[in-house]
């Protein structure tokens, strides 16, 4: 990263990494939780592009609310169904909800999330279900 690639420096770095890994292994603090990377790469890229557009849209919406004189807040706390199977896809969905300003995942349960919305409108759950379907398209197989 620093642009210096002397064998001595790289060797020191590799050595300390190995020592740290060994010590942590001896301490038995690594949980036996392996995350399978069950994602479709091309669809993942498509999803990212879509997510960026969503983030931009909702940012502008929240900015308008902040700058409006009377701040038209209409808060709600509701459940959103979550149909993903793997934990990784669930995490992606929850983080996507939080990343788009205006909605935040507050609590996660097995098949639904509790979502808090800043300016709730009646078609918000449908939008979240659309996002859910998109994340589901990214997910490939995994544990049933």
């Amino acid at each position: 990263m620093s642009g210096v690639y002397q064998p001595l420096t790289i060797g020191f770095g590799a050595m300390s990494a190995i020592v740290a890994t060994y010590v942590i292994h001896r301490m038995n603090v690594v949980d036996e939780d392996r995350v399978p990377l069950a994602l479709h790469p091309v669809r993942m890229l498509q999803y990212w592009v879509w997510l960026m557009v969503e983030i931009a849209k909702s940012n502008i919406a929240v900015t308008k609310i902040i700058l409006a004189r009377d701040m038209p807040i209409r808060q709600n706390f509701f459940t959103a169904p979550c149909t993903e199977k793997t934990e990784l896809a669930q995490v992606i969905f929850a983080n996507s909800i939080t990343l788009t300003p205006g909605t935040i995942t507050v609590e996660t349960e097995d098949d639904h999330f509790w979502v808090h919305a800043l300016a709730y409108s009646a078609d918000d759950p449908d939008a979240l279900m659309d996002m859910d379907a998109r994340v589901l398209a990214v997910e490939t197989g995994g544990r049933a």
């Binding site: 983030i55 929240v62 205006g102």
Partner: peptide, 28 residues
């Protein structure tokens, strides 16, 4: 957008709405 987020944290009335304001400056 960073300033907007900070202004939002200042203007919004309660904690739950401030969360959303912070996420503006954190994402955009």
């Amino acid at each position: 957008f960073t300033i907007i987020g900070a202004v939002g944290t200042l203007r919004f009335p309660d904690f739950w709405s401030r969360l959303h304001a912070v996420s503006v400056s954190d994402s955009a």
